[in-house]
Design a binder for these strands. Structure first.
Lengths: 138, 138
DNA sequence: ATAAACTCTATAATTTTTATAGGGTTTATA
DNA sequence: TATAAACCCTATAAAAATTATAGAGTTTAT
């Protein structure tokens, strides 16, 4: 399951996508719309900005806005940013690889092999679904 | 990512599949092979037995053994049993459904729609990979 | 009778996630 | 140029979930 962080990030991105015409949007408005803690959401938007998905304007009249096209924001990226690996095991993660302590030899591990396949097929799904798809469903 | 519980369950099932000829296998042997806590693994094997994957023999000379064919143990089942939902959000879980607090109307939620598609496609993957596939990779 | 091995439930320890707090910086505008 | 609005940043607290342990049953081969 996705963490609340990732879920809220998706809500925020969706909100920003829908309100693109308004220029900037306040954290406050997004938080209120979904009943999310303002401060918690603040941290999430900060991460999304640092990762290059959002721009911000400081000071009075400021706010956040999308700086990427919705079609260029795949679920895979948002999930990796906020939740970490998409792979089901650390030993097959492309971006967060770590060996599994209980496994003596990865090359001889059937679980490793199958999970690498699962990862590849899962990635295909998550790379092909974008914010655009979410927006089209609203 | 899978919890250690699920990961250890897969190791245990694999071990039991490989040692099918021996009749029963001791918790101890599996735990030692992978450096897993005996007691922790004990709880996991208990769950697998209650779920109908394993049989056990009590008393001296007892142990665990597979009672399902490896091809009839899909990853989806093992994951659901030990880790819970496969869906990325509670609002699209088939087996563990719960509404999302921050969502006013599921029918109008683009995230919900996309995640239902992701769930369907992910399930296809996890229902088609079985213990058999793992065993063939060892 | 005894020891081996699974059964079951409770609880403790650890880690991760979620949430809050509060001072800092920037900027529009009166 | 003072002020208030709004994002910036880091630290810490609270809550929840995961991981691990404990210990008293029960069953069974010998």
């Amino acid at each position: 399951m996705l963490s609340k962080k990732t879920k809220y990030a998706l809500h925020a991105l969706t909100y920003l996508g829908k309100h693109k015409a308004e220029g900037t949007v306040l954290i406050h408005n997004i938080a209120e719309e979904h009943g999310i803690s303002h401060k918690f959401l603040e941290n999430i938007l900060l991460e999304l900005r640092k990762a290059g998905y959002l721009g911000s304007k400081k000071g009075k009249g400021g706010g956040y806005y999308l700086i990427k096209e919705p079609k260029d924001i795949p679920l895979s990226r948002v999930i990796r940013l906020l939740d970490g690996p998409i792979a089901l095991l650390p030993c097959v993660s492309l971006n967060y690889y770590e060996p599994c302590a209980e496994c003596k030899n990865e090359a001889l591990c059937g679980i490793n092999k199958v999970m690498a396949q699962v990862r590849d097929e899962t990635l295909k799904i998550l790379e092909n679904k974008t914010l655009q798809d979410i927006l089209e469903g609203e």
